[in-house]
Design a protein around this nucleic acid. Structure first.
Length: 345
DNA sequence: CGAAATTGGGTTGCATCTCA
DNA sequence: TGAGATGCAACCCAATTTCG
């Protein structure tokens, strides 16, 4: 075939570079990959020519040779939480950042407990080398499926099966510490509003709350604990009951619930922290900017994404990695849980 | 119609060449 | 003679095309 320069549009491959430089494509491949024996002079010559002609490796071809796709699947939850909880976007940003840096692309899909067909499609059609699950359920069909298929995957969260790669924040410890801090700060009747207990993270946070209460020899009062509050209406009803029960602090399992609590308290014309204190087991910008700002646990979700991605890609590359990694947290005390002056000793 | 060849660009095991 | 440099050719995989 006659080779004609096509105004920079023509994609050149290592064959043409080899022909141009009078060497074999093996030599070109070695110069580019840095693998195998090659003289410094030859490597320099090849790399210079690659630079000059704007060579870009064809990742499909590389994938073919390596039996890899160089894609990593990212599964987000298929529900409205996606819009309301910034966690997933931030986690995804971290994943994409790390994936790009490691020569991979992120292929994003959504799935739910009821329907994991998107994940099956990804795997069956060989679109990805591995998968990152950004939410885990106590009974998780995605995890079961990926285990069954022997697909490399990691959960950005926790799972009961110790053989599953996991990276998570220290939710139990963090929630225990914040609960304990609130109790130390003279919150005497703490009410708890939690979301879907099917989610692993909800289990962890609730466990942390119980541990914090136990630390102060407080019993969990059924009339002050509201779980599986999945809707704004349920949260609103919980707040109404909590107010009747004269709790002095509402502890919210996550930022979405906390937003709904704040809206409800606003409707009721209640003042924070004078009438009631509020804290959240998850932070977000809205809670930070709220007046008064809301005490919350802060996690670096972007870092969580980065670490999850690095772990699974390292694992795919055959490196030995830790089975479970924990990331830290910060407790950010803000005016929403400040002691009222007249209560101070 | 089924079987075999071809296609894509890069990687790699092994053979061969070169030169001190 | 042997270590380093280089090249040949099979291979990756699955869809598509060609052949008998």
């Amino acid at each position: 075939m006659e080779k004609k320069p096509m105004k920079g549009q023509k994609k050149i491959g290592i064959d043409e570079i080899a022909r141009e430089l009078g060497c074999s494509k093996t030599t070109v491949s070695r110069a580019i990959s840095g693998k195998g024996r090659i003289s410094d002079g030859t490597r320099k010559r090849v790399l210079e020519y690659c630079e000059q002609c704007g060579y870009r490796p064809n990742s499909l071809a590389k994938g073919l040779a390596d039996s890899k796709t160089y894609n990593i699947g990212v599964v987000l939850p298929d529900d409205q939480d996606l819009n309301e909880i910034p966690f997933f976007q931030n986690c995804l940003l971290g994943i994409c950042e790390m994936a790009t840096g490691m020569g991979y692309d992120a292929v994003v899909t959504t799935a739910s407990a009821k329907d994991i067909s998107t994940i099956k499609n990804m795997i069956e059609k060989h679109k990805v080398d591995g998968v990152i699950l950004t939410r885990t359920l106590v009974e998780d069909p995605s995890v079961d499926y990926l285990l069954e298929q022997g697909v490399p995957f990691i959960v950005a969260g926790s799972h009961k099966n110790p053989n599953v790669l996991q990276v998570d924040n220290h939710h139990v410890e963090a929630c225990r510490e914040l609960t304990s801090l609130l109790l130390t700060n003279r919150a005497s009747r703490i009410a708890f509003i939690g979301g879907n207990l099917d989610h692993m993270v909800s289990q962890k946070r609730f466990a942390g709350f119980r541990a914090g209460m136990a630390l102060h020899q407080r019993s969990i009062k059924d009339e002050l604990v509201f779980l599986n509050c999945n809707t704004k209406v349920l949260v609103g009803q919980a707040v109404e009951t909590i107010l009747k029960q004269q709790a002095d602090c509402i502890l919210c399992m996550d930022d979405k619930i906390c937003n709904q609590v704040l809206m409800k308290l606003n409707e009721e014309h209640l003042s924070i922290p004078k009438d009631i204190k509020v804290a959240s087991f998850y932070d977000n910008l809205f809670l930070q900017c709220h007046n008064p700002a809301i005490t919350a646990l802060q996690f670096d979700e972007k870092e969580l994404g980065r670490v999850a991605c690095k772990m699974i890609l390292d694992s795919i590359a055959g490196k030995t990695i830790k089975q479970k990694v924990y990331l830290g947290y910060d407790i950010v005390l803000r005016p929403s849980t400040k002691q009222n002056n007249f209560l101070s000793l």
